[in-house]
Amino acid sequence: MGKAIEISDLKKSFGNIQALRDLDLVVEENEIYGFLGPNGAGKTTTINILLDFIKPSDGEVKLLGHDSRRESFEIKRKIGFLPERISLYDRLTGKRQLEFVKKTKGADVDLDGLLERVGLEGEGDKKTGKYSKGMKQRLGLAISLIGEPELLILDEPTTGLDPHGKRMVRDIIKEENKRGATIFFSTHILEQAEKISDRVGIIRGGELIAEGTMEELREQVGAESYLRIETDKRPNIDSIEKLEGIKEIEVMGNEIKVKVEENMSFSDFFGYLESQDVKILGFETENSSLEDLFAILTRE
């Protein structure tokens, strides 16, 4: 399988500020890649370079096998793009603007069907100046879909959308991926990346600091699980700590909170409690939250 995006040793400085330092990143064809990072990490700068809006200071970028600088025209025939802040021509109707894109892309598309797909049915004849923020974002998404692009580059696609809208974006991303498209989207919200990405790359300070599936990322940072157990009496915890895989233990009355290594088998632990004649009334496990993970990864 080919590569949809290949970024090697990419550097970009604005004056004294290094926005990107040696960024390396590969997106496989037909993959959903979540480009995750806090605001100001270099996500939009990277996307602007992918689209040849700004010139890199150094490094090489290839999209769908084409050089981003020399063959940007070829690339633009095969991609769809949704910018971070969608800016439309407010004096024109939504449909007119879709028509304009259709013409410049030389695409064949049913605009009413497209409007319906992004939840704007019946709104096409309104000027976009009268659109809400969410509606503009939906129209922007519609624009990016025109021409069945091979690669969709979506910069913070769920910005300004309500939960329904966010789900619609995820559904569309999945549909487009099924059709065969590669999706590269940026977000600063881990939850958004986690829900649909095949792989996630985390950028901080202009560098990719972690990459992989969510499971791989959890392993990389050594994320932990908690086990919460309710018992009928206070167990003797002295020897619990000797059990393998247990890192920390805390007892509050009849409740035990145990920090365990991921994938540890709990049966030893339960067996131990039983041997002490402690009855387990209930238990639950808890992964360290995704937010914690993201915080760990992007900590300065």
Binding site: N48, L51, F53, F73, K76, R77, I79, F81, P83, E84, R85, I86, S87, L88, Y89, V101, T104, K105, G106, G140, I143
Partner: peptide, 17 residues
């Protein structure tokens, strides 16, 4: 103006020189 507000980059993401 259109460069600043993002309308122009969007247009330039289409296959147009």
């Amino acid at each position: 103006g259109e460069g600043e507000n993002g309308a122009l980059p969007l247009v330039l993401s289409y296959p147009i020189t």
